[in-house]
């Protein structure tokens, strides 16, 4: 198992390192990401969204739906921790059986 994993990872190292030339150079102002979608954010966001901070404009307006998802992720994490850690001690657990629902009696 570990042998296979290490071979796979060596392969990944090889593949990654030999194909970096396909990526845009760092700092290149003419790479695909800087030329295709983002110019509109930079040029028009103040006019269109009233926010001179482009990141805020993208985050909260152009891609505001992503941010709703992101906030939901945080809320989900809060729910998850609360479910896992707090409710183990609620009075409804009579016999210390640490399952949310009728879980394994073999615990």
């Amino acid at each position: 198992m570990k042998l296979i994993a290490s071979v796979a990872m060596l392969c990944m190292v090889g593949i990654f390192f030999t194909t970096t030339a396909g990526l845009p150079q760092i700092y290149n102002p003419h790479s695909a990401p800087s030329e295709h979608v983002s110019p509109r954010y930079i040029e028009k966001s103040t006019k269109e969204t009233g926010s001179p901070n482009f990141v805020t404009a993208v985050l909260a307006d152009y891609r505001g739906y992503d941010t709703l998802g992101e906030t939901t992720v945080i809320f989900t994490a809060g729910l998850a921790t609360a479910l896992l850690l707090r409710s183990r001690r609620t009075p409804s657990f009579k016999n210390e059986q640490a399952c949310l629902v009728k879980g394994d009696p073999d615990e």
Partner: peptide, 15 residues
């Protein structure tokens, strides 16, 4: 994340 939490709620082995 929701699935992790739901799976973990099944007991200690599930954790």
């Amino acid at each position: 994340l929701a699935a992790y939490a739901l799976i973990a709620s099944g007991g200690y082995k599930a954790t």
